[in-house]
């Protein structure tokens, strides 16, 4: 499904601030995999997701989706295969546009955008049905500016949008980190529903170890631009926060740097 082959990304190369953000990373995802990613700040989690999404070119290696090499494809062309939700709820939607307009932007992802109306009446019905399932009362607010909604509502809509038009891959970059605990739990539940219903291959970064354990069928831990742990299947089901921390000490030989990961 998704294949990363020896991906390397170096920021500020050949300067004193040189930072190897991704160090020869290789990763293969099977169809329908739900991978959670944990690791301290600066471990390379977001960089990996952005490399897959094409936010910047990588310095080495190859990225393949279903066997197609997308390494050289610009970000907006990769979007055809990839749905994304960002950490900042403001990032995933266009604040000055209506809910229905935002959704129509998503439903045309990867399609040619010509000079036909962006929204037709039967589209509205579809959007209403989709919104209704979020159970946030948004189905009657199609022509509300997204900027007027709360962070949780915006993330939920972004999730819906990311799942539209059958993406091959869903990338979630700490998409609950900016929300209060109650809203975060709700958005996570919606995430789970959407992923299961659409059988989406998903990568979810989280700072919360318990969330990483509870969700998905595979867990990877990153440190200093490398994948240092990769736990799947039965072994993952048996994980606890303690055993995860212990495994981390063993593999990296250092204490887990991030307090947020411990406390979360």
């Amino acid at each position: 499904m998704l294949e990363l082959k020896n991906i390397t990304k170096i920021f500020n190369a050949n300067t004193v601030n040189e930072k190897v953000a991704l160090n020869d990373i290789s990763l293969t995802l099977e169809d329908g995999d739900f991978v959670t990613v944990i690791g301290g700040n600066g471990a390379g989690k977001s960089t990996m997701l952005n490399a897959i999404a094409g936010t910047f070119p990588v310095d080495g290696g190859q990225i393949l989706i279903d066997g197609t090499d997308i390494t050289k494809l610009p970000e907006h062309k990769r979007a055809k295969f990839i749905g994304r939700v960002f950490q900042d709820p403001m990032t995933g939607t266009a604040a000055d546009m209506w809910i229905e307009e935002n959704m129509s932007l998503a439903i045309n992802r990867g399609k040619k955008r010509g000079f036909t109306w962006a929204i037709k009446n039967n589209d509205r019905e579809l959007y209403k049905q989709m919104l209704k399932r979020l159970d946030l009362g948004l189905e009657d607010r199609l022509s509300t500016k997204v900027g007027l909604l709360s962070g949780g509502q915006r993330q939920a809509i972004t999730l819906l949008m990311a799942s539209m038009n059958d993406p091959k891959l869903l990338l979630l970059d700490e998409h609950t980190a900016a929300l209060d605990p109650k809203t975060a739990a709700k958005v996570l539940a919606i995430t789970r529903e959407i992923v299961e219903e659409n059988h989406l291959t998903t990568i979810m970064i989280t700072h919360n170890m318990q969330d990483a354990i509870n969700h998905g069928n595979r867990l990877i831990m990153m440190n200093a631009g490398k994948i240092i742990l990769d736990i799947k299947g039965e072994e993952k089901k048996a994980l606890t926060v303690e055993s995860l921390l212990e495994a981390f000490h063993k593999t990296s030989g250092s204490a887990f740097a991030s307090d947020r990961a411990l406390l979360g």
Binding site: F86, M97, E101, L105, R113, G114, F115, A118, M161
Partner: peptide, 28 residues
């Protein structure tokens, strides 16, 4: 009328939130 088309909506999204626009496959 132009702003109401798919193309026009993509143009407005580009101005409103470039990062989002690219994530939705718009050539900003």
């Amino acid at each position: 009328c132009f702003f109401g088309t798919k193309f026009g909506a993509a143009l407005r999204a580009t101005g409103c939130n470039e990062k989002m626009a690219r994530a939705q496959g718009i050539n900003t």
